[in-house]
Write a protein that binds this DNA or RNA. Structure first.
Length: 809
RNA sequence: GCGAGAGUGGUGGAACGGCAGACACGCCAGACUUAGGAUCUGGUGCCUUUCGGCGUAAGGGUUCAAGUCCCUUCUCUCGCACCA
């Protein structure tokens, strides 16, 4: 028996698909809107390490789905490209002097070859590369629109700085106080930065999550990241100081329990209100806090620190004179950077009050708690309850009390309802070389002036050294002939912006460029956007939950507001594929030596085996370990299919059992493919092929539909078998097989008989036998009379086609 | 600490509230070849000689019936982390 010649087959069909442009997507108006699908993969960053086995997992899933859709009469857009700006190429350039573009394009060529070797049905004519000037021209163009709308601004502020990458980072790029990319502890640094006003979209980014078919955990992460909270701001008068101190609280009902105030050390009031005798201590504390990184501040969370300023505020509800402290447990970046402290009902305030022996007054009672409430409570209680010690508000439940006190404050002009978000504006500039130049100039006379749109792209110039300066300037700052330019507005001397955009910029809108990748006049023609958008299915890793997936939603909404796109959300459905771990159940990494190279798998087992194995491993969404033994099992499955195809094909009617199994198989593979449950679809195909392999001759009617089912999963083998069956043209354009419902169920059903919940017997009955009849039959079933003898049947339950359950006493 | 998800054979994993372990790997036995990561057949959760009993992280509950629904606990993974 000839072995399955996967190498020849795969090469042959890949060439044919390329020559015949089999998977080219065309905006054909004959397909109504509901028969069009845009299926998107998260495009890869072409690292020097080459493709990882994790990439083909998502790509295979979408590819199977796309092939399935095409066979079902859909016009499918399925593109691929490269996210090509980024630090690794730049770091390599620093070490070797090789231009990042050289490395990047070499890596792209390798990635493209590797991806093509797996036989994915991409329309390669739409490929985009984010570092291509014709691409980033439009990234820059979008930046200019943001700038013109006031959504991009310059600010000098303390930011997250990675001392190793020598660049600023967005909040989203900091994980547990460390640089998400290199793991170095981030420090705070105050420098001039470009910032995007994503906070202006906070409410919409939050609300519109409700319309998305995304995994709940991802939506929840975005909700938490946006961090909306409702509360009130309250103004407190300060003794001997004109300006009132504004604080934010989510629990205005606890106002009577505010026994002290806390300001962030950076709060602008601090120098003004601090009394002379406390000045030295306050200044020392501020200095200490400034030297700490955010991580160090949170590491010390358990042990609260702080100093008294000597100043007092007046509690507006009861006129109480309460001390003002500073402490780094209050963050300058959230709310107003100042709080009223209610130690009885806030754990942090409780800790602080205990440590510094500040008074604690209970103002919320637990339901049923009777008091007395005139002494210090034993423990902090953050739960809702009934107001006590709160003057005219006593007796109100928390929710009502919040409403009443808020009204009371508003009437007197000393407070108002407020909404706060944890989301911060997006720090958008990087002090690095390999990114999109920000297309503005700084003119002494005109200030910040955007470049005219016609002048784009503003190309990234050649530099002698890629090494970041570390001073807060990018390597571009060293090229004086590039930096020094003229102002497009006044013609006077001006300096170019030397910061570049972050890696996320290019990926914020790439799905739109696929629609019209060569368009020199627009980021994409509106008719093409209307034809394909929004993306119906987006598959990729969960690591971008609050990075790419949040940023691109933001940009898309801006483009929507500008009237440039047809929907206010880009990705209707999102699926996160799980991680593929090493055979040792650990994350694959060079240092662990557990990395599997897809090239080796394709070389030794073939692309189809790789694809089918990765889909057979388990559900798409979960993490699972690689197993070469498992791969061999799938390889055997394909070998068996090839062996069947070598047997004589006969034009004979099907045996009833085979016909039933065929229709069951079509049904299961159809449903499971449509719902992305590929592992169970494959197992059904295995069951079917195991049956067929028992036959000496293969009836065409049993074989042809199976080849069609297999084709999206193992496309090279599918094409070859289709051709062997005498068909011309690609199997990818053949219609998906249909099943007859009546042939998917058995005529005879095995009925289980339970007595007191335990299975005691089984019998077969014709499908659809009535419940009464089943119970009669069950009483006579093997061994059942013995189980029932001498007992009283209390209850008999029958489930049609399934079981009979007796309850006896 | 808070939030989310997950715990099923030796392994990856199946299972509309209805026979737990489909399919695959591995292992055992046999056949055929006589080794080129073979192929085919049969077996394979645990205990028990049989009848049968026990089994889905642990404990409890609802139900004729629970891996599946509810409560409590434990473990692991991920996310956030003094957000007032």
């Amino acid at each position: 028996m000839a072995k399955y010649p996967f190498k020849d087959i795969e090469k042959k069909w890949q060439k044919r698909w390329e020559d015949e442009q089999t998977f080219r997507a065309v905006e054909d108006e004959h397909f109504p809107k509901e028969k069009r699908r845009y299926v998107l993969d998260m495009f890869p960053y072409p690292s020097g390490a080459g493709l990882h086995v994790g990439h083909p997992e998502g790509y295979t899933a979408t590819d199977i789905y796309c092939r399935y859709l095409r066979m079902n009469g859909y016009n499918v857009l399925h593109p691929m490209g490269f996210d090509a700006f980024g630090l690794p190429a730049e770091n390599y350039a620093i070490q070797t002097g090789t231009h990042p573009a050289v490395t990047t394009y070499a890596n792209i060529d390798r990635f493209r070859t590797q991806i093509k070797s797996l036989g994915f049905s991409y329309d390669w004519s739409r490929e985009v590369i984010t570092c291509d000037p014709e691409y980033y021209k439009w990234t820059q163009w979008i930046f200019l629109q943001l700038f013109k709308k006031g959504l991009a601004y310059e600010a000098e502020m303390p930011i997250n700085w990675c001392p190793s990458c020598k660049t600023g980072l967005a909040n989203e790029e900091v994980k547990e106080g460390h640089c998400d990319r290199c793991g170095t502890k981030v420090v705070r640094k105050r420098i001039r930065q470009w910032v995007l006003k994503i906070t202006a979209y906070a409410e919409r980014l939050l609300a519109d999550l409700d319309k998305l078919d995304w995994p709940e955990p991802i939506k929840l992460m975005q909700r938490n990241w946006i961090g909306r909270s409702e509360g009130a701001s309250v103004f407190f008068k300060i003794e001997g100081y004109d300006e009132a101190l504004e604080i934010y609280t989510t629990r205005p009902d606890t106002l009577f329990g505010a026994t002290y105030m806390v300001l962030a050390p950076e709060h602008p009031f601090v120098p003004h209100i601090t009394t002379p005798e406390h000045r030295a201590a306050v200044e020392a504390y501020i200095e200490e806090a400034a030297a700490k990184s955010d991580l160090e501040r949170t590491d010390l969370a358990k042990d609260k620190t702080g100093v008294f300023t000597g100043a007092y505020a007046i509690n507006p509800v009861n006129g109480a004179r309460i001390p003002i402290w500073i402490s780094d447990y209050v963050l300058i970046s959230y709310g107003t950077g100042a709080i009223m402290a209610v130690p009885a009902h806030d754990a942090r305030d409780w800790d602080f009050a205990k440590k510094f022996k500040l008074p604690i007054i209970q103002v919320v009672a637990r339901p049923g708690e009777t008091g007395p409430f005139d002494r210090e409570p034993e423990a902090c209680n953050e739960a809702e309850g009934i107001a006590v010690n709160s003057g005219q508000f006593d007796g109100l439940p928390t929710a009502q009390c919040i409403a009443r006190i808020s009204e009371w404050l508003e009437e007197r002009g000393i407070g108002k309802k407020t909404v706060n978000y944890k989301l911060r504006d997006w720090l958008f500039s990087r002090q690095r070389y390999w990114g999109e130049p920000i297309p503005v100039v700084h003119c002494d006379r005109c200030g910040i002036v955007p470049l005219p749109e016609e002048s784009l792209p503003l190309a990234l110039p050649e530099v002698k050294s890629y090494t970041p300066t570390g001073t807060g300037e990018s390597p571009l700052a060293a090229i004086s002939e590039w930096v020094n330019t003229t102002c497009p507005r006044c013609g006077g001397p001006a300096k170019r912006e030397t910061n570049t955009m972050p890696q996320w910029a290019g990926s914020c809108w790439y799905y739109l460029r696929y629609l019209d990748p060569k368009n020199p006049n627009a980021l994409a023609d509106r008719s093409k956007i209307d034809y394909w958008m929004p993306v119906d299915l987006y598959v990729g890793g969960a690591e971008h939950a609050v990075l790419h997936l949040l940023y691109s939603r933001f940009w898309h909404k801006v483009l929507y507001d500008l009237g440039l796109v047809n929907t206010d959300e880009p990705f209707m459905r999102l699926v996160n594929q799980g991680m593929i771990l090493g055979e040792d159940n650990q994350k694959m990494s060079k240092s662990r030596g557990n990395v599997i190279n897809p090239d080796d798998i394709v070389e030794n087992y073939g692309a189809d085996a790789m694809r089918v194995y990765e889909m057979f491993m388990g559900p798409l969404e979960v993490s699972k370990p690689w197993s070469t033994a498992g791969l061999v099992g799938v390889s055997r499955f394909l070998e068996r299919i090839w062996a069947i195809s070598e047997r004589p094909l006969v034009e004979e009617p099907l045996a009833p059992e085979i016909e039933k199994l065929l229709h069951k198989t079509i049904k299961k593979v159809t449903n499971d493919t449509a719902t992305l449950n590929f592992n169970t679809a494959i197992s059904q195909m295995m069951i079917y092929s195991n049956e067929l392999s028992k036959l000496e001759t293969i009836p065409r009617a049993a074989w042809e539909p199976f080849v069609l089912l297999l084709a999206p999963y193992a496309p090279h083998l599918g094409e070859e078998l289709w051709e062997k069956l005498g068909h011309e043209g690609s199997v990818s354009k053949a219609p998906w097989p249909a099943y007859r419902e009546e042939l998917t169920c058995d005529d005879e059903k095995e009925i289980v008989v339970q007595v007191n919940g335990k299975v005691r017997s089984k019998f077969t009955a014709p499908a659809g036998t009535s419940k009464e009849k089943l119970i009669e039959m069950a009483k006579r079933a093997e061994k059942i009379p013995e189980w029932l003898s001498g007992k009283e049947i209390v209850k008999a339950i029958a489930v049609q086609d399934k079981l009979v359950s007796f309850v006896v006493r």
